[in-house]
Design a protein around this nucleic acid. Structure first.
Length: 839
RNA sequence: GGGCGUUUAGCUCAGUUGGUUAGAGCAUCUGCCUUACAAGCAGAGGGUCUGCGGUUCGAGUCCGUAAACGCCCACCA
């Protein structure tokens, strides 16, 4: 029997281990069709946040639902090595422990990194358990483990052989803190305060000068030209002449190039081919000299004169001062402009000329765009609008820089010897080959996740059975990094979509609608929420509070409301269990109208819930379940059942309804439902069968009768409250024999009078029900007002309906049942109005 | 500059092929410790569904348009 009070800590304590040890999470137990989800692998850098809790709860609901329906459900767990992020954290830890990570050998450093990984993996496992995720741990993968590494090398080699991976010197985004190249997706543009510095570039052969405006004066040491637009009348005659670079005193040419925009700045722009992507292009067109002035760590190099060794920002500050003192600074305009930051380290990204590996994107992206035109083979997004986001990316994407100057990751399978290069899955056998030091972008391996985790490139049983996967669940912020890349790699290497559906959810925000972030300190640890309210409450709250694809404002009040709902279920279950303990065999004979009513409602609920579960619209599932459980089952049926608790039929109905409620709730709140279910069945709920809609259990007539009864009781109570009649009151019932249930519901069985009295009374009626309610008080003024208000609204409604029914278009075009319904409603309202007016 | 989203009760949000007098949670008001639950029960109040125009017998829902807020992408000397 259940404890008197619902205690989430107690309920959730041991259940996870029991499920896990019993093998219920394992795939292959059911003989039905495969249903497979691969978890978006969390980074091994740290703790899971609320976003993970949301994302994984959605998946667990899908998996548990399908499992209960008999599908062979497989949910693949795993983690991501998260190159830059993890390396930064490991380095930080080593420094804190007094070690210098950069003076270690690669091998030594990797030992520490793997130890870190093991520690954090345990932490994540613990959190998954707390959340109740039914992951098949037999299939767990890590992006750096052997099988996945082989998949990575296979893909690299194949793309290289196909000419879709190449190595070359390009302008890339450089992270001076992590000292690695980045892809475009890893650059986040943020508005920062800066300034337009107007610098005087004197002509070599006259006293005149050009006013050159720049936001990055420190790069001037690398200037090898000043560009003006050839159509700009102000400057076009200067083309071909030379100016003197201030301080450096190097002569640089004035060139004409379309890149210079007459409407921007002063119309003349300094050209620094090594430190700006556009300038690089200009440099190529005009065959300009390339001078690097910034080191990979963000300090100035020997080309920056006596600024050598200074950090780029410090150099800027001092340089501006010097320019000013020497009369070269014409003016400084404060501006706010957007500047690229590294997604991981948050430092300003430096455009940098460097030799890197790239994936040639155009052919791969085109393949996706082509496939998305085919309804049968495309990735279907939920909500569908996110397909456009992916397609747009596919249209504009350019080559993906995949090499990273890190140690934590898949080392690039390329070996060099003199001028030769060898690219292969394994190292060349001969002596003297040296492997490329760089590793691959983390997302390179993540892109293979849906098939590499299932054993690809081997044709494993899992791969054949579960691929392509059924659904991928992730937030819209990950579409460019991950969804897109999985889609093109999947299509290229497996010749099909990696997942049939892509379910996109939003981001979690704080109550004010701000992103949760460390700097704001508004983050919420899901583990804290779980200890306070339980995983069931958190999961239920997260997954039923918004429509798919929209952001969620975290609101603790709503978690509390979820807890209250669970508490309600707990108590209702306790009531049912208390009363069915002696039930031997379920019998459904002589069903009362309330039995028929709740059974009918149950079937309708099963039908609707199943419909929305199949569409993964959990908010809609909630609306239906919540109403059915709280209002129909608890407030109505249980109250009515209290008058026939000795009946085997009542007990049977209570048990059946509770059983199906628990089953439908299980995917959302697995712990508490399993705990209660132990008292109903020997089969664990997690592997029991999901309810199936049975139209033979619909009792239309009984349902209608009971609806009328409930409505009448509601009207009666309303009336009683309006008249401010307390416990002591008397009534007269015209047809006493039919009213036993009502008498009990209203708890006035002993106060019924034998006949109509001549006291003040109010007739309360609805359909067949008519009761005289005696009240000693005269109707107050307030009552009169209320009555007038009711009459008024009735009149309005009648008028509206009459107009509607006068409209020939409506009569002809609207469905017949709707027209009849209107007619019925109209006559009903007219009758009601008549009665009110007679009173 | 291109695209997308949001705008519904005091607050947070549902409302998915257009169809009763638009819903929920929280908050508010009234009355109840009724033996599953006072974290509860029984009632009540509260919305010209952002504005304007259109389609339709009928619009919160479809179309057009304007505004506010937010997001993504691109650019930014």
């Amino acid at each position: 029997m259940l404890d008197k009070k619902y205690n989430h800590l107690e309920v959730e304590k041991e259940q996870y281990e029991i499920w896990k040890e019993s093998g219920y999470f394992k795939s292959g137990r059911n003989s039905g069709k495969p249903f497979c989800i691969v978890i978006p692998p969390p980074n091994v850098t740290g703790k899971l946040h609320l976003g993970h809790a949301w994302d994984t709860s959605i998946q667990d609901i899908m998996i548990r639902y399908k499992r209960m329906q008999g599908f062979d459900a497989l949910w693949v767990p795993g983690m991501d090595h998260a190159g830059i992020a993890t390396q930064a954290k490991v380095d930080k830890k080593l420094r804190e422990d007094g070690m210098d990570p950069r003076s270690m050998s690669r091998e030594e450093w990797l030992k520490y990194a793997w130890a870190w990984k093991e520690e954090y993996a345990l932490n994540i496992h613990d959190q998954w358990a707390k959340l109740g995720l039914s992951l098949d741990y037999d299939k767990e993968r890590f992006t750096l483990d052997e099988g996945l590494s082989k998949a990575v090398r296979t893909v690299f080699v194949k793309l290289y052989e196909e000419g879709l991976i190449y190595r070359g010197e390009r302008m890339i985004n450089w992270d001076p803190m992590a000292k690695t190249a980045l892809s475009n997706e890893e650059v986040i543009y943020k508005d920062v305060e800066g300034a337009f510095y107007h610098i005087k570039y004197p002509f070599v052969d006259s006293d005149l000068y050009l006013d050159v405006a720049t936001t990055r004066p420190e790069t001037m040491f690398g200037d090898t030209a000043v560009a003006v637009n050839p159509n700009d009348d102000r400057y076009k005659d200067y083309i071909g002449r030379k100016v003197l670079l201030p301080l450096v005193n190097r002569e640089i040419p004035i060139i004409g190039d379309e890149h210079a925009d007459p409407d921007k700045g002063t119309g003349c722009v300094k050209i620094t081919p090594c430190h700006d992507p556009n300038d690089y292009e200009v440099g190529l067109r005009h065959n300009l000299e390339k001078i690097v002035v910034i080191n990979p760590d963000g300090t100035m190099n020997e080309n920056a004169l006596y600024y050598e060794g200074l950090d780029r920002f410090e150099a800027r500050e001092k340089l501006v001062k010097e320019l000013n003192e020497k009369g070269y600074l014409l003016k400084t305009e404060k501006i706010v402009h957007s500047v690229g930051h590294s997604e991981r380290t948050d430092v300003l990204v430096e455009p940098y000329l460097s030799k890197q590996w790239f994936v040639k994107m155009r052919p791969l992206a085109d393949k996706v765009l082509e496939n998305q035109k085919n309804k049968d083979t495309k990735v279907k997004f939920l909500p569908s609008r996110y397909e456009k986001i992916m397609n747009h990316w596919m249209e504009i994407t350019y080559d993906w820089c995949i090499s990273r100057q890190l140690w934590w990751g898949h080392q690039i399978p390329a070996w060099y010897k003199d001028d030769q290069i060898y690219v292969g899955i394994d190292a060349p056998k001969e002596e003297g080959w040296v492997q490329d030091e760089d590793v691959l972008d983390t997302w390179f391996s993540s892109a293979l996740w849906p098939f590499s985790t299932l054993g690809w490139p081997e044709e494993t049983e899992d791969y054949q059975k579960y691929y392509p996967t059924s659904v991928l669940v992730t937030g819209y912020d990950i579409i460019p990094f991950w969804v897109n890349r999985m889609t093109f790699q999947g299509l290229h290497f497996t010749h099909q979509r990696p997942f049939e559906y892509c379910y996109i959810h939003g981001l979690i925000r704080d109550k004010m609608g701000r992103k949760m972030s460390k700097s704001l300190g508004n983050g919420v640890d899901p583990m804290d929420v779980i200890s306070e309210y339980g995983a069931d409450a958190l999961r239920y709250y997260l997954t039923t509070s918004t429509a798919p694809g929209t952001d969620l404002r975290y609101d603790e009040d709503k978690v509390r409301a979820a807890w209250n709902f669970i508490n309600k279920i707990w108590n209702a279950s306790r009531f049912v269990l208390m009363n069915i303990s002696d039930l031997q065999e379920e019998k459904f004979e002589n069903l009362s109208i309330s039995d028929q009513w709740i059974l009918t409602r149950l079937e309708k609920t099963i039908k609707d819930v199943t419909k929305y579960m199949d569409k993964y619209e959990f908010q809609n599932v909630n609306t239906i379940l919540y109403k059915f459980i709280w209002e129909d089952f608890c407030d109505q049926y249980i109250e009515m059942a209290k008058f026939s608790l000795e009946s085997i039929t009542t007990k049977s109905v209570l048990k059946k309804v509770l059983t199906d409620i628990l089953k439908m709730l299980h995917p959302f709140m697995p712990f508490v439902t399993e705990e209660i279910f132990k008292n109903l069945s020997k089969t664990p709920l997690i592997i029991s069968e999901y309810p199936k809609y049975d139209k033979n259990l619909l009792f239309v007539e009984g349902e209608a009768k009971c609806n009328a009864l409930i409505e009448f009781v509601r009207i009666f109570r309303n009336r009683k409250a309006e008249l401010q009649i307390g416990k002591e009151y008397r009534i007269y019932i015209s047809k006493p024999n039919d009213y036993s249930l009502i008498r009990k519901l209203l708890k006035w069985e002993d106060k019924e009078t034998e006949e109509k009295l001549s006291l003040n009374y109010t007739v309360v009626e609805y359909q067949d029900y008519q009761v005289y309610l005696y009240n000693e008080h005269k109707e107050t003024l307030e009552d009169q007002e209320k009555k007038l208000k009711t009459i008024d609204s009735l009149k309005k409604s009648i008028l509206k309906r009459e107009n509607l029914l006068k409209n020939q278009n409506f009569i002809e075009k609207a469905p017949e049942n709707l027209v009849n319904e209107e007619k019925r409603k109209l006559s009903e309202e007219k009758e009601m109005l008549k009665k009110y007016e007679e009173e």
